[in-house]
Design a binder for these strands. Structure first.
Ligand SMILES: [Mn+2]
Ligand SMILES: [Mn+2]
Ligand SMILES: [Zn+2]
Ligand SMILES: [Zn+2]
Lengths: 145, 145
DNA sequence: TTGTAATTGAAAAATATTATCATTTAATAA
DNA sequence: TTATTAAATGATAATATTTTTCAATTACAA
């Protein structure tokens, strides 16, 4: 079982959030499938059983669950955000989550990992994304929490 | 000089695209700064000098330039897409660009790189994103190009 | 120069996300 | 249990973002 209701409740409460029925349902819905789902897809599933839960609540819940690491946010090309349960001269990026500053870095080679994954999964890998998110020096001073 | 107009023109034409004034301007605008810019920000800059270039053209141009690797698309948390010149138990993802299938993988450790980057840049790194994009086995057979 | 497929811009449409605010509710402690 | 209260919800509206449409224009190969 990849999903523990008790754990979700505990972690939410530990961070000062309430464990509401809505949050339980959204979490369960995401846990009920291997797929990654867009907010709209999650809302649709949730809405079938619980037509009274609003889309906005889904968005709010996803934000919180992702922030707490209870679900995993991923970037899927076109439709930017989806969620799944948490269980040239190429360069990569370091991005400040506060001011948006971007620092490039290079010299980190992922080709060995890429090859390993290709063999293990049969994927034909075309691209990758490696980004670090954090606070730049300037923003570390400004930001309270 | 990080930007070569001739190279842009050549690569566009090599792929059957025309090298239009609009595409030149968008490329130049992106190349003119170290920042990463949202489509809206790019449009705004472009629009100052060339008020006749439409927002839609900016979007279309960004798609093409990114696809050809002439600019680099990045995922910046909140506001999903920006562009810059191209020069639980934690796990990561392998995503099929055709059907959206997601395969998790784990056991790849980025902590050493993270530490190195922290030291070099002064960033306080909070998170990272590592994703491989490609075609799953099933889709490799289906997809023509 | 000509022909033609690609591209463009304006507008509208479709999507996606966030803000507001009156009402309800989970959690704490009397 | 009950009362209290800050947090959460849902309906709606407001924004923001992206895509579609289509007639007019244009790059560029022939
Ligand atoms: Mn890059
Ligand atoms: Mn992950
Ligand atoms: Zn910063
Ligand atoms: Zn696939």
């Amino acid at each position: 079982m990849r999903f523990s209701e008790k754990k979700t409740a505990t972690i939410l409460r530990q961070h000062g959030y309430k464990f509401t029925p809505q949050r339980r349902v959204v979490t369960q819905t995401i846990a009920s499938t291997q797929d990654h789902l867009t907010p709209a897809a999650i809302y649709e599933k949730v809405h079938q059983e619980h037509p009274n839960i609003g889309l906005v609540t889904v968005y709010r819940t996803l934000d919180i669950l992702a922030k707490l690491g209870l679900i995993c946010e991923l970037h899927a090309g076109g439709s930017c955000h989806s969620y799944t349960t948490s269980a040239s001269e190429h360069h990569h990026h370091l991005i400040c989550s506060n001011c948006g500053k971007v620092v490039d870095f290079s010299g980190y080679d992922l080709s060995e990992l890429k090859q390993r994954l290709s063999l293990e999964t049969g994927f034909e890998i075309e691209d990758h994304l490696l980004e670090f998110i954090g606070l730049c020096q300037a923003c570390q001073k400004e930001v309270i929490r």
